[in-house]
């Protein structure tokens, strides 16, 4: 679910058909007033916060907020970062952005930074649509900080590193091979188990390197 969030006053400036457009199963419009402490989004949910373009910025443009800074220029939320094809903006905490900051603080208690986007955009229907299409694409992607390997594959990597007496460089290569198997095989753990069954005992790093070379070849043939 993508929550499109804005203060009721901001929402009232948006075209009515935009609000209707977003009332489908995957997107919900949420006003600030409804974000109460008992609001419980699921971990896969994301929020798109829309705020008016502050004075001094081009009226027809749209900006992704990457950082909020206080009046002294210090980062207030340095981790507020999502991907976007819009120009970035550093939003200075001041009277004209009070609404944005209040909204962010309210939402930030419910969404981790990588699932929350803040955009400054006008009430222009076309620009709103573009923001929404980008936000919908964003919510369908895993969070950028999410590692490729899942917990069991990560445990497998740790185990292989130990068994191969792996150096840092060998560990990096093992990780690359496991990522390859992650995308390529239905069950990477089973694939690695099959290899290890035929692998001779490894007693030192030299033998570990030889085994790694065999594992590399095995992966390319799998």
């Amino acid at each position: 679910m993508l929550y499109v969030c804005a203060a009721s006053e901001t929402l009232s400036r948006f075209p009515a058909d935009f609000i209707q457009l977003n009332r489908d199963s995957q997107t919900d419009v949420l006003t600030l007033e409804n974000v109460t402490p008992d609001f419980r989004p699921s971990p896969s949910d994301a929020a798109l916060l829309l705020a008016p373009v502050p004075a001094g910025m081009p009226e027809k443009a749209c900006f992704r907020v990457v950082r909020l800074t206080d009046a002294g220029g210090r980062d207030r939320y340095p981790d507020l970062l999502t991907a976007s094809s819009f120009p970035d903006a550093v939003l200075h905490y001041g009277p004209e952005t009070a609404e944005t900051v209040a909204l962010y603080e309210r939402l930030a208690s419910h969404f981790p930074p990588e699932r929350l986007q803040v955009y400054l955009c006008p009430g222009d229907a076309e620009i709103l649509k573009a923001v929404l299409s980008e936000a919908e694409a964003f919510v369908s992607l895993p969070a950028s900080a999410e590692p490729v390997l899942n917990a069991s594959e990560q445990a497998l990597l740790t185990s292989l590193c130990g068994q191969f007496y792996a150096s840092d460089a060998m560990k990096e290569e093992l990780e690359r091979l496991l990522i390859y198997l992650h995308f390529h095989c239905a069950d990477p753990t089973e694939t690695v188990s099959r290899f290890m069954k035929d692998c001779p005992p490894v007693r030192n790093r030299k033998e570990g390197k030889a085994c790694l070379a065999s594992f590399r070849e095995y992966c390319s043939l799998t």
Binding site: P58, S84, S85
Partner: peptide
């Protein structure tokens, strides 16, 4: 809706972009 920028690199070469995401829109 066109947006005027001083230099195209300010948009195209910005840091912190996600090209995979941008490909979708």
């Amino acid at each position: 809706t066109p947006v005027t920028v001083k230099d195209y690199k300010h948009v195209f070469n910005r840091p912190g972009q996600n090209a995979a995401l941008q490909k979708q829109a």
